[in-house]
Amino acid sequence: MGLEITTTRIEDAAKWAKQSKLERATNWGRKFSLFSYPFVTACCGMEFMSVAGPKYDLARFGAEFPRFSPRQSDLLMVVGTITEKQGPALKRVFDQMAEPKWVLAFGVCASTGGFYQNYHAMPGCDQVIPVDVYIPGCPPRPEQVLDAMIMLMDRIQSGRGHSQLRTKREDIIAAQQAGTEE
């Protein structure tokens, strides 16, 4: 193998062995060049700033630039409380992102609604968009975010992100249909 891959999980390495060289190379490239779109709505934004700033430095994982256009990004970070009124906007932002795309739910508000159990707060942004990694904490420590980032990178490398799986599924279905039509 000409490609050097570092991983924190042995079982992941076994999974990658099933991937083709090309797939492995693309996923490797994807995981080290995440362009994040911070969908910052509430107090977790402060913690996001600290993670993105030089002390904890999210950039060393390759998530270098926060892009403020969803069309130029492939990692949606949902940072903060999502209200029911915001749901359509969040869905629209997610739909505008180019495939493959990943979603990080930052903080308990984005994961479950947190302590807002009432008429206005959405019980987790996964009601509207598929979430890959959830980060607990109110707000989460930067270390938790970095841990989640590593988990997400593992997921990307092993092709288990929601959008990657969806693409694979669609490919299989399309292949089956092409087979039945012949």
């Binding site: 029911e84 009124k85 749901g87 359509p88 869905k91 159990q117 009432n118 008429y119 206005h120 959405m122 019980p123 996964d126 009601q127 509207v128 968009i129 598929p130």
Partner: peptide
Amino acid sequence: YPLRKDYPKEKRQPLVRR
């Protein structure tokens, strides 16, 4: 009207859902 006391606490009125 959500702040009326007889509005159910857990009642949600979603605009979108997956």
